[in-house]
């Protein structure tokens, strides 16, 4: 079943056409990668799904047309975004950030969810009363991911979770993504680091200057000579 279905999505900032009419979909339970170079339009695509960029086209989530849905209601449908640059609330404490993730919930499960996040990222637990802005980049990425999970999403949108992080931290974060995926979460993973993203994913889309130019299963993309040359440096 298609959880997210996108038809002819265009994003235009004034005169700039950042996304030029793309079609793609995510099946429930899938991990799908969207890879592409700087400026290809990956973030714009995610921001359009989240109603944060001016766009046209059709978006369906869980069979529901998203045309009339406001950005602040998406999380109630089950869509969570870990934005590019993490978007943590730096003056609030780590725990307050996580609790913001659970803003739409009002039940006792918030507490168990919080413990779950602390088990996934023990570093966040050690620093739970610290201002989030004092965390290292890697810890902030963990926090942004943890915060998104606190909303109990059906679809997790990730915008370059590996950006600017040391390989060890990236591995820690991707290990957690693997665990979450094993629990059945649908993940849309936007990455410049194509190798990393495709290794985790089942399928992938390749984006170039606003268009999807290629789509295939992840193993096939990893073997594709064009991809290997352009994105994997081989």
């Amino acid at each position: 079943m298609k959880l997210l279905d996108v038809h002819n999505l265009k994003v235009h900032y004034g005169g700039v056409n950042a996304v030029k009419g793309i079609d793609f979909h995510l099946n429930a339970g899938e991990i799908v990668a969207l890879v592409g170079a700087n400026g290809a339009g990956k973030s714009s695509t995610l921001r359009a799904i989240c109603k944060l960029a001016p766009h046209s086209g059709k978006l369906f989530f869980d069979g529901k047309d998203l045309a009339a849905v406001k950005s602040h209601d998406l999380v109630r449908l089950g869509i969570a975004l870990v934005p590019e640059g993490r978007g943590i609330f730096s003056d609030s404490s780590v725990e307050e950030n996580l609790l913001m993730g659970a803003y739409i919930h009002n039940d006792a499960k918030i507490k168990t969810d919080l413990e779950k996040i602390y088990t996934l990222f023990p570093r966040l637990k050690e620093r739970n009363q610290q201002a989030a802005g004092t965390l290292s980049g890697g810890e902030q990425q963990m926090l942004a991911l943890g915060r998104a999970l606190m909303s109990r999403p059906k679809l997790l949108l990730l915008d370059e979770p590996s950006m600017g992080l040391a390989p060890l931290i990236v591995k820690a974060i991707f290990d957690v993504l693997k665990q979450i995926a094993a629990d059945g979460m649908t993940i849309f993973l936007v990455e410049q680091n194509a190798g990393l993203a495709l290794e985790l994913s089942m399928r992938g889309y390749v984006m170039e200057s606003g268009n999807i130019v290629l789509t295939d299963s992840a193993p096939a993309l990893l073997q594709n000579p064009q991809i290997r040359a352009a994105y994997l440096g081989q």
Partner: peptide, 19 residues
Amino acid sequence: NAMRATAQNAEVAGLMGVN
């Protein structure tokens, strides 16, 4: 918490469900 979050980053607070 939602007020402070909105003050810091209204867009991201919106993604958490804050109007």
